[in-house]
């Protein structure tokens, strides 16, 4: 299977084996999402750079990429929250806002400072409200079963653990019985175990013929559930193909070095970084763009020694996730274990 890619040559050289698109299937399903030449800038920063993308109905797509690659902007555009400055975006054959207004789309966005749920109500009350905002909601019990929140219905929304809150938010995102679901970093507040449960839930959802687009930075897990993996970098598609093919092609490099300034926050903000693991003074970083990461590292004045760069397999990345001293993003560390309370 070929890996389709576009983007600057520096990214392409390591990604591309065969530069042609796969032959179209005999009976392709209708287009669910399409980006045509879409550009969007926030001031000077280009978030989407002439993005072209087509997702067909029934596909489960993982959208990968480092922070700032354009994943969240892509989802905001698909939801009509942002109108791109150039280009054309369609969701289910219409304007994104139309699709949202018709209740054909569901979304689980990144939560900010809280859990993204209304405080002071029970889970079932929040879910019943959201159902009533749709003309044709999914049946209550169906949602509860799908999101596995049967045991949480009588709990107050502000008394949930990180993983539990994410399941409730997933329930809310499917309350309108959507044809397309967007999930922006849905597993960011979860430990590894609950993440697996969550991916299974989404996979099952996709198996019903619904279109699922998940933005994530967990490469290994995205690979397991998605039919297709799209890697974004600098607002463009850096790679696009079935998970298995990408596995071999994705240009992840692992950087190891020793430093006395092992600051999780700083390291995870470096350009191209997807994972950071710290063991004492030893640091292991996975990057989609090793050159840029090192330039950034030097630029920020982090002193390091014994630098070693290797190709990082997805399995390796997964071992690192569960291994020693895995430094998770702040939201994850805060959430703690699935069963616990905040």
């Amino acid at each position: 299977m070929a890996v389709c890619a576009s983007g600057s040559p520096s990214q392409l050289s390591i990604l591309l084996e065969v530069p042609s698109r796969p032959a179209p299937p005999v009976n392709p399903s209708p287009v669910a999402l399409s980006f045509r030449d879409v550009t969007h800038r926030y001031g000077q920063r280009t978030a989407l750079d002439r993005l072209d993308l087509v997702v067909r109905q029934g596909e489960v797509v993982a959208l990968l990429g480092p922070n700032g690659a354009g994943k969240s902007t892509t989802i905001s555009v698909l939801l009509g929250l942002i109108r791109p400055q150039e280009g054309r975006v369609e969701v289910l054959g219409s304007d994104p806002r139309r699709a949202v207004a018709d209740g054909r789309v569901g979304a689980m966005l990144q939560s900010g400072s809280g859990v993204g749920l209304p405080p002071g109500v029970r889970v079932d009350q929040a879910l019943r409200l959201v159902r009533r905002l749709y003309r044709r909601p999914a049946a209550f019990d169906w949602i509860v079963e799908r999101a596995d929140i049967g045991g949480l219905l009588r709990r107050r929304t502000d008394k949930l653990s990180g993983g539990q809150a994410q399941r409730v938010r997933f329930a809310i995102s499917i309350a309108g019985d959507p044809e397309v679901v967007f999930l922006d970093e849905p597993t960011s507040a979860m430990d590894v175990e609950s993440r697996h449960g969550f991916w299974r839930m989404m996979r099952a959802f996709g198996d019903e013929g619904r279109t699922v687009l998940v933005a994530t930075h967990h490469l290994a897990e995205a690979d397991q559930i998605a039919d297709r993996v799209i890697v974004l970098n600098h607002g463009r598609v850096a790679a696009d193909g079935p998970g298995a093919t990408l596995k071999a092609a994705v240009a992840t490099r692992r950087l190891r070095f020793v430093t006395d300034q092992a600051d999780q926050q700083v390291l995870s903000e470096l350009e191209g970084v997807t994972e950071v693991a710290i063991c004492g003074t030893g640091v292991s970083i996975d990057s989609l763009d090793a050159d840029a990461t090192i330039r950034d590292l030097v630029g920020r004045g982090v002193r390091f020694r014994d630098l070693e760069i290797t190709g990082a397999g997805l399995e390796q990345a997964f071992v690192a996730l569960t291994g020693c001293g895995v430094a998770r993003p702040p939201a994850e560390a805060k959430a703690g274990a699935e069963g616990g309370t905040r």
């Binding site: 949202v100 209740g103 809280g114 405080p119 309108g176």
Partner: peptide, 18 residues
Amino acid sequence: SMERASGWARQLRVTPIP
């Protein structure tokens, strides 16, 4: 202010209500 910071307000914006 809290609702907006937590993302609940945004969640409502992606439901069919205007």
